[in-house]
Amino acid sequence: MRKFLGIVLFICFLACNRNPFAESRYQPAPYTPSSVVVPRPDQAIVPLPEKPAVYAIFLTTQGNLTVELFDQDAPKTVQNFIDLAQGEKEFLARNGQKVKKPFYDGLTFHRVIKDFMIQGGCPNGDGTGGPGYRFDDEINGKSLGLDKIQAGQAPYYQYQLQRAVANELKIKSREEAEAKREQLEKAFEEAKKLSVLEILFRTGYKYNENVNSHKAIKGALAMANAGPNTNGSQFFINQVDTPHLDGLHTVFGQLVSGSDVVDQIVKAGNSKTTIKKVLIVDKRSIVKPTS
């Protein structure tokens, strides 16, 4: 009996002292690809690239922005944007009533930051609003190379690294952190050996392995959010490269003309530029004549 009790205690000791960062827990999220449909293709009022693709033209009070939408690489995000822009999707108005009309018409770029980005898509005009629903991120972390970077070598993701460690140790306050300082420091060093992909996964991000995701470079159109899987209607367009956002936001388009307009919007300041309309032009079906 004494021998049996000793074995049980030894097993409990191993379980209690097992390193929670010794192995990966990452699992790709289930994902079913979809095709993007443009219900009412608009006519282009500005020159577009020859490339067959879906384009969004933002008509703003500062000028026009033309973006190629990544219908193959973020189809569900692109479809949501198109349906909101064209009034094909119901959303919740500020009075609590469901409305079906072009969502972005009349909204402003409510948040602009020099050498960063311009953000729009908030019906409240202050970053607190949305369409009344949320949907998941649509990102392939491996295609961004996040599985090849150790968290300890990626200063951009230190906040997420700290969160992952705190979550694992169930630390919810500064007092608890102080009480577990030694354990916390040891766990932090162990967690630094994990990949950025693993750390982000442990802080709630979902990644699939079906799409080819794009980095948040200059001119990238991406979903703004309040954390993992909280997408709605708000978006931003980068004025510069923002590598610290890779894997944290779904990039679903790329600016092809209008970078000077982005600069003007930034210069104008918060809520000084209005989106008059968003046109959706579908050039995917264009077939070049054979000689």
Rank of each mutant, 00 (worst) to 15 (best):
A166I: 01
G258C: 10
T61V: 10
Q254V: 08
K180S: 09
K267G: 00
E190C: 01
R2T: 10
F70M: 12
L14Y: 03
T32Q: 14
R202L: 03
R163A: 11
L197I: 08
Q153C: 11
K170Y: 00
P47N: 06
Y133G: 13
L184H: 00
V281K: 05
G145Y: 07
I118W: 02
A154K: 09
P30Y: 01
N17P: 00
I139P: 10
F91N: 14
N212W: 00
E88V: 13
E209S: 11
I275N: 08
D263E: 15
A151T: 10
V38C: 11
P102A: 05
Y156W: 14
D137S: 08
I280W: 07
T128P: 04
G247P: 14
Q97G: 04
K277N: 14
G87F: 09
I286Q: 15
V278C: 09
S213V: 08
K277Q: 15
D136I: 12
G204L: 05
E209H: 00
I171N: 03
K98N: 14
T61L: 14
P155W: 06
A44G: 07
F91T: 12
P47Q: 09
K114F: 03
T60E: 04
Q234E: 12
K288D: 12
P228N: 02
K89Y: 01
E175G: 00
V99W: 01
L221Y: 01
T77K: 02
A22Q: 10
Q234K: 02
C122D: 15
G141F: 05
G130Y: 06
R202I: 04
Y133P: 11
H214I: 07
S173Y: 00
T290D: 09
I265V: 15
V54K: 06
K89D: 01
K180T: 00
V112H: 04
V46I: 14
L146P: 14
D115N: 15
M1A: 08
S259N: 10
E68H: 05
R163M: 12
L5Y: 06
A191Q: 04
A74G: 12
L84N: 13
G227D: 05
V251Y: 03
I280V: 14
I199M: 04
V54F: 06
D147K: 09
D136V: 11
V8T: 08
A74D: 08
E190I: 03
N19M: 10
S271Y: 01
H214N: 09
I171H: 03
